[in-house]
Design a protein around this nucleic acid. Structure first.
Lengths: 256, 256
DNA sequence: TAAATAGTGTCTCTTAGACATTATGGT
DNA sequence: ACCATAATGTCTAAGAGACACTATTTA
């Protein structure tokens, strides 16, 4: 205890930060059924949740949800708490993105922000939109958010970085599972990947994913108790084989 | 200005962090010529630089070099400044690793540390070892650092994370160039990769790296003005073709 | 029966991977 | 002449990639 006293004294000799918030880029993949056509994949869009600020600074501008970290929690815990406050749900993928500390980034003082990104389901955000004052919460496509909105602080930079990271993670890890039901068809998987990474084009996707020894490991056919393969014709006339992710995430190398 | 006053006032109502240091995991690849045998690759080892703490807390324990971030600089700037202070050199690869904020991690108070890792050349560290009190600076293999030394704070965790990250980056980016001269042979490159990632085994490394269309892009044969291929017999009897990295870093995907 | 999507056949070319062989220059 | 390492030859099996074709269900 008197150790702490000693330190507090020392620390008070120096300028210390005025606050350390965690800001969260909450991504969701909206899924809109197409009523006109039956038996077809829903339209999917990658969106990000933003909140309109009411107070100075940046009043009226759109900002990432976030909150200040407290002394008795880690930054990650603060982000988790914030995520739960926004969605009402504990789950979901939450991953550290980076630190934003450019001097002057926040007019309130020396504020060092820690950015996270989360992958949540659309329904988790709806309750938030209903609870608080509606109209102060919005779901935007990345293009809208980055090109059309007036964003608070350095949040455009944060969202840009988060977008690049989610694209990278989509191709290099199995986070696609966060946007899919436990069992899914390969067309669904392909659509999810393409929604997040439009540049991803694989004409022979199904063929490759099912035949390549090295990639095989990440996916597994779904079978019933008797070992018969399970399929679904929810999105197509002809039933399609259902797959699930395994726990295996391969190590990639540019030299292999 | 009275905006700032307003904030400082607000911030002072809340508990704020006592300090935000940047700590750097400085990796180097030592290169020791083998005198007994000629025309052979030098022995290489991956090492990390640590400093023995003189003051409370953790006096006598080994710690990462680091320093507190100031108000007029970003965390990255603080790390860059620290790196220069330690090595006397501006250059070198410096990359953000992550934030360490577990409550109680530092007995001095609420200290949120930001870890970086740097790749430096061995000679950059020698001047530091000479200048300050020698014996207070050490170069250790990862095994020594992680298993034999008493490390300060949560620095074991940080070093472990940094080790995993450098291994991942070694395979997925071209940071190997930081440990190689501008022109190098494929054996040298292979040795560097294996020194950092011992699990990396490619019996047909040379064949693959020179013949695979997709990998070809990261390396380029060195040629002289007349376009004749350049080779070196520094490390072998028969001269070996010299290569250089291009600026191209391929995008990897588990689905491709 | 037509439409729509799932999945396979087939063919060519490239790569993986293992081993053997040849090439080069120093000791 | 011998050695160590670089680089190529050779062979088989597997994957990439394109395109045509068949399969399964609903409207």
């Amino acid at each position: 205890m008197n150790e702490n006293a000693e330190i507090r004294y020392n620390a008070s000799k120096y300028r210390t930060p005025d606050g350390v918030p965690a800001d969260i880029v909450m991504f969701t993949l909206t899924k809109r059924e197409r009523k006109t056509v039956t038996k077809t994949l829903p339209l999917r869009e990658l969106k990000v949740m933003l909140i309109r600020r009411k107070k100075w600074p940046c009043a009226g501008m759109w900002a990432l949800p976030g909150g200040f970290c407290q002394e008795d929690e880690s930054i990650y815990d603060a982000a988790k708490r914030e995520l739960k406050e926004e969605t009402g749900v504990d789950g979901g993928h939450l991953e550290y993105l980076g630190v934003y500390s450019t001097p002057g980034r926040d007019p309130r003082g020396w504020i060092i922000s820690h950015a996270f990104f989360a992958l949540v389901e659309e329904w988790m955000l709806e309750q938030r939109q209903a609870s608080d004052d509606a109209g102060e919460v919005g779901l935007f496509t990345l293009q809208e958010a980055l090109e059309e909105l007036e964003l608070a602080f350095d949040h455009r930079e944060i969202i840009t970085d988060a977008y690049h990271r989610i694209q990278q993670q989509m191709l290099q890890t199995t986070i696609a599972r966060q946007f899919l039901p436990p069992h899914f068809t390969l067309s669904e998987l392909y659509q999810v990947i393409q929604t997040v990474v439009p540049e991803f084009k694989e004409p022979n996707f199904i063929r490759k994913i099912t035949s390549t020894r090295s990639r095989q490991g990440i996916l597994q056919e779904v079978r019933d108790e008797e070992g018969r393969p399970l399929s679904s014709n929810q999105y197509s006339q002809r039933p399609a084989q259902l797959y699930m992710f395994t726990d295996h995430v391969p190590l990639l190398s540019i030299y292999t």
